[in-house]
Simulated scan of single mutants.
Amino acid sequence: MKQLPLDLQLPDPTGFDDFLIGPNLEAFLALKALADGESPESCVYLWGQAGAGKSHLLRATVARAGDAGLDALYLDARTVAPGESAHGHALLAVDHVDALDPAGQIALFGLINAQRECGFAIVTAGQQAPAHMPLRDDLRTRLGWGLVFEIAEPADEDKAALLRHRARARGCEVDESVCRWLVSHQRRDIGGLVSLLDALDRAALAAQRPLTLPLVRDFLRDAEAGN
């Protein structure tokens, strides 16, 4: 399959309207209320496997709070340790807290306390429930202070519907059978499936072919042969 160097990737959608709610309605509504300043809670922790949508929800919460005029900040603890610059935001989101080193854990512990004392909000996320996190005991306790939600993976039919919606957003009509096949045969997490669909769409445009199952199989065979 001949492929041209096209750069047609859409930015990853990060709003609440782009989140596939599935079994996570309670967490979804709680975070929207927090972003709108309508929640009595000041501390929310999300946990679940990689690709479940935790980062999407944290970014959506920060974006909605910013749109409402609140000073909101998102931090990815894998790349940026929470420091002095993280203090004083009306809403703070710290992602991948399980990646924090001992100094970062102490800093996050202080941030949670400071946010609560100032009447500000903090949303954090990791891959395990607070009691099972490989963190300091006092930090595990703080993470479980407020609301704790497990972000569960949506059903396969919901994932297929999301892929079709994503394709249409790119201006690409794709048969529902293709989306169902991708969900059942490829990476199961939403992020991986969306990235694969985007790559398939670019390949279809480059080859001037419709995005069908034969094209998908050709693309995957060529990709595997190139590894």
Rank of each mutant, 00 (worst) to 15 (best):
residue 226 G to Q: 15
residue 31 L to V: 03
residue 65 A to H: 01
residue 68 A to K: 09
residue 109 F to V: 04
residue 184 S to W: 06
residue 121 A to P: 02
residue 54 K to T: 04
residue 215 L to Y: 06
residue 169 A to H: 09
residue 47 W to E: 02
residue 2 K to T: 13
residue 32 K to R: 14
residue 142 R to I: 04
residue 111 L to K: 02
residue 80 V to P: 06
residue 99 A to H: 11
residue 16 F to S: 03
residue 121 A to R: 07
residue 48 G to F: 01
residue 198 D to T: 10
residue 97 V to Y: 01
residue 222 D to R: 09
residue 202 R to A: 14
residue 44 V to N: 02
residue 185 H to P: 09
residue 45 Y to W: 06
residue 18 D to Y: 06
residue 132 H to P: 12
residue 79 T to H: 13
residue 131 A to S: 15
residue 5 P to S: 08
residue 105 Q to S: 07
residue 145 W to C: 11
residue 157 E to M: 11
residue 79 T to P: 08
residue 124 T to S: 10
residue 30 A to M: 01
residue 124 T to V: 06
residue 87 H to T: 10
residue 130 P to G: 03
residue 152 A to S: 14
residue 175 D to K: 07
residue 23 P to N: 04
residue 138 D to K: 07
residue 221 R to I: 14
residue 221 R to T: 15
residue 97 V to T: 05
residue 150 E to Q: 09
residue 124 T to C: 15
residue 213 L to W: 05
residue 95 D to F: 02
residue 115 Q to T: 08
residue 95 D to L: 00
residue 72 A to Q: 01
residue 13 P to T: 00
residue 37 G to A: 04
residue 183 V to H: 04
residue 89 H to P: 09
residue 121 A to I: 03
residue 136 R to E: 15
residue 166 R to Y: 12
residue 209 R to D: 08
residue 217 R to K: 14
residue 78 R to E: 10
residue 166 R to K: 12
residue 126 G to S: 08
residue 85 S to W: 11
residue 100 L to F: 05
residue 148 V to T: 13
residue 43 C to H: 06
residue 169 A to S: 14
residue 45 Y to P: 08
residue 72 A to Y: 00
residue 136 R to I: 09
residue 217 R to F: 12
residue 128 Q to P: 11
residue 157 E to K: 08
residue 121 A to H: 08
residue 128 Q to N: 12
residue 9 Q to W: 13
residue 75 L to N: 00
